[in-house]
């Protein structure tokens, strides 16, 4: 943080808006970009596999890896405080409840629960 934004003595903890955005290191963005492109190429080639389920698993796992790379390094989530992780965790929890709530409507599980006559 630059000197002009140094808080008065005793008020250090009150500083809410640091003006210096360089709170994190700068990863080698080009390296990450190239890694993302390689994973993207693998995704495209993986789609040529003849088993749809296998394609689904492979491309979905790669998508999660790619999204994590963007989140951690491009969005600097790796350097963010726990509050941000908590925010995203809450979003994922909401999503999980949504899945649990909607799953029986989309895929009727009652057919497995009710014995066939």
């Amino acid at each position: 943080m630059s000197a002009q934004h140094t808080p008065p003595p005793g008020l250090e903890h009150e500083v809410l808006v640091p003006q210096d955005p360089d709170y994190h290191g700068h990863p080698n963005y080009l390296k990450i970009y190239i890694s993302l492109l390689i994973l993207f190429a693998i995704t495209v080639f993986a789609s040529l596999i003849h088993s749809p389920l296998l394609v689904f698993i492979v491309v979905f796992v790669i998508s999660i890896v790619k999204a994590s790379m963007v989140l951690l390094y491009f969005m600097h989530l790796k350097w963010e405080p726990k509050l941000i992780w908590l925010l995203l965790g809450l979003a994922l929890m909401t999503l999980l409840f949504l899945i649990i709530g909607l799953y029986p409507d989309v895929v009727p599980i009652t057919r497995y629960l009710i014995p066939k006559p």
């Binding site: 903890h13 500083v15 809410l16 808006v17 640091p18 955005p21 360089d22 709170y23 994190h24 290191g25 700068h26 350097w79 963010e80 405080p81 726990k82 509050l83 941000i84």
Partner: peptide, 11 residues
């Protein structure tokens, strides 16, 4: 050059 920040310091 990274330094950990607290939630109070997030812009």
């Amino acid at each position: 050059s990274s330094k950990k920040i607290t939630w109070r310091q997030i812009p």
